[in-house]
Amino acid sequence: MSGEVWVYSESEAVASEVATAADDVAKGASAHVRMVDISSLRPTTRGSGARLLLKGPPSPEVSPAVAAEALARAARELAPLAILLGATRDGREAASRLAAKLGVGCMAEVAGLASDGQGMTGERDVFAGKVVAKVRCRFPAVATVKVGAYPRAVAQPADAQEKDVGPIPDQTKTLGREKKQAGSVDLRSAKVIVSAGRGVKKKEDLAILAELATAMRGALGCSRPLSSDLGWLPEEHHIGLTGVTVKPDLYLAVGISGQLQHVAGMKDSKIVASINTDKDAPIFQASDYGIVGDLYQVVPALRRALAARR
């Protein structure tokens, strides 16, 4: 049979990105791309080529373990050349389980996929993105595709083929879902971070920094004393060696002295600006821009200036 490259992701948006990557692999291997759904056909179809619906597993929620088993059962019968998944949290788990079940290689978090007909190559970031490793895997193979590395494939009409893989008991059970507490932040993906230090005199004053962060469409972070010692902010706001490491486009350090403990967690920010009353504060040496002044005057002034520009 002519080979197939399967695409599966629990996220429809990611699946359409993976489909673009699959096109590159299929081209080199003269294969076809097949979008795989499990349990229910997606309402809209993105991506090129044909579709395969695996029936049998519990619906509607398919855990990574169940997805891996369903894909493995279908793959043993239909023998695709490659199965590409999205490198999401679930996708990573499903891919590693799937590769282990099939006893084939797995390339993790790759982009720049290509094929020479015998196998596929991909590029992955190693050493925290300092080096790009080119990896190769012989067919049949499994890979997870780096999210955001490919454009989404255009929707195309497709015929759906169905395949019953039989019931698959889910070993995991969702007991309940809880919303993250209000104000929870994901500092690692924030483009702008306003970060508070011990220059803030009391907990209530953090409000003016939170407002500034909102006005700048950014997130609020802090140095260790504020979260770990004073408990003014939850630990997830703590930026530094013992907290989160961030690299936003703009990092505004307010009332932070600039200890190594903190600087090591934000040194890779694109632009660092800081406000501190002490002109000798070490943070200024780690900054591109610095304002020597009282944050209680500078921050409101910044707020006014931002409001005026709207």
Partner: peptide, 9 residues
């Protein structure tokens, strides 16, 4: 520390 920490420098 004294190499990289601005304070310890």
């Amino acid at each position: 520390v004294s190499s990289f920490d601005q304070r310890a420098q």
